[in-house]
């Protein structure tokens, strides 16, 4: 019964299928447009917002304001960088907000042992929390949501325990070299800006130009396929969660250096900020696609809008969340429409 019995008919049938129908062409066009929107939407909006702000608010374009904007963005950017890797593998890391705060407190605590102590202590502890997250997610196959929710509570609890429920604030000694990590400037820009840029550049190269990066994409894009192709899926997951913990801890250390102390109340809800800027930046929440550059744009967009709302002055700063929330929803709706034709085949 196979076409071999009537080869001519089969050939014509095959030719028929290869010709794109109008329906499929329309679908492809729509997908293409949605794809561009999803990948570049944040960049386009960022340019529009920047242009508007520049024209409307004379103080926006001032050197002080831009410097401040860059500095404020760098702390979130470092956290969101780790989150980008986690989300591309199809996971989520809810612990970063608590780990970020814990990192700050540990840095301040560790600063009594000098620069190295202030840096090594938060990195060691936060890296370990990330490592445990990764091992639990990869080896026990528990949902990342649950595992990292547990470590969110764990890190926040540990933080409260070592600060007597926040009553003890560890100060960083005024002469400590560690302060340079947060307060130092080079060519007018804060050191955290350079550190965040360097980390994001390294992260971009890691994601796009290494075998590890390819296996991050493959793990989130099709985990069972990645396994069958012999990729180190479990190791990839462990590495991304460890990375996320390390980066959140490092961002906390920079924040502590900037604030000269380990502030216990920061980082509440920061995980949600990080997730939203990553997704706004075009990373698929379902995993398998995303860029570091997009995440950086997402961070900038969030903080520029925040800044503009502050400039308006009459608007409550909480409107920043309203705008971010609305934008996030729009991005996710576009992602959904992108994913549907693929899933619905």
């Amino acid at each position: 019964m196979r076409p071999s019995t009537t080869p001519r008919a089969a050939d014509r049938a095959a030719a028929e299928t290869s010709r794109a129908t109008p329906a499929s062409a329309a679908r492809t066009r729509r997908q293409l447009l949605a794809g561009v929107l999803q990948r570049q939407g944040a960049a386009v909006v960022l340019v529009l917002v920047l242009a508007t702000a520049w024209v409307s608010f004379p103080r926006f374009g001032g050197a002080d304001n831009l410097r401040d904007l860059a500095l404020q963005s760098s702390f979130l950017a470092v956290i969101a960088l780790g989150m980008t890797f986690v989300i591309i593998t199809g996971g989520i890391d809810l612990s970063v907000g608590s780990v970020y705060a814990l990192g700050g407190v540990l840095a301040a605590y560790g600063s009594r042992w000098g620069f190295l102590g202030a840096l090594a202590l938060p990195l060691a502890v936060c890296g370990l929390i990330g490592l445990v997250n990764g091992i639990l997610v990869a080896r026990t196959r528990m949902a990342p949501f649950i595992v990292t929710l547990a470590s969110l509570l764990f890190a926040r609890g540990l933080l409260l325990a070592i600060t007597n429920e926040g009553a003890t604030t560890y100060q960083i000694h005024g002469g400590s070299a560690f302060l340079q990590l947060g307060r130092g400037t080079v060519l007018g820009l804060g050191v955290p800006v350079y550190l965040a840029l360097a980390l994001c550049a390294a992260g971009g190269v890691l994601l796009r130009h290494t075998r590890f990066g390819q296996s991050v994409f493959a793990t989130g894009g099709a985990e069972s396929s990645a396994l069958l192709m012999g990729l180190p899926v479990a190791r990839t997951k462990i590495v991304v969660y460890t990375l996320s913990g390390l980066l959140a801890g490092f961002s906390g250390a920079m924040t502590a250096a900037y604030l000269q102390s380990g502030v216990t109340v920061i980082g509440v809800g920061t995980e949600l900020d990080a997730i939203s800027v990553v997704v706004i930046g075009g990373t698929l929440l379902t995993g398998g696609a995303g860029t570091v550059l997009g995440t950086v744009i997402g961070v900038l967009l969030r903080n520029v809008i925040q800044n503009v709302i502050n400039q308006i002055g009459t608007l409550d700063s909480n409107y920043q969340s309203v705008v971010s929330g609305g934008f996030l929803l729009a991005v996710v709706v576009v992602q959904r429409s992108l994913a549907r034709p693929r899933a619905g085949r």
């Binding site: 290494t210 390819q214 296996s215 894009g221 990729l231 693929r342």
Partner: peptide, 23 residues
């Protein structure tokens, strides 16, 4: 992996590397 490029899929896990170790 549908989201990865065609070339990425062909070489996944054994990508050719430059002498810097990058893909």
């Amino acid at each position: 992996v549908p989201l990865l490029s065609i070339a990425g899929n062909v070489h996944l896990g054994r990508e050719p590397r430059t002498r810097w170790g990058l893909v």
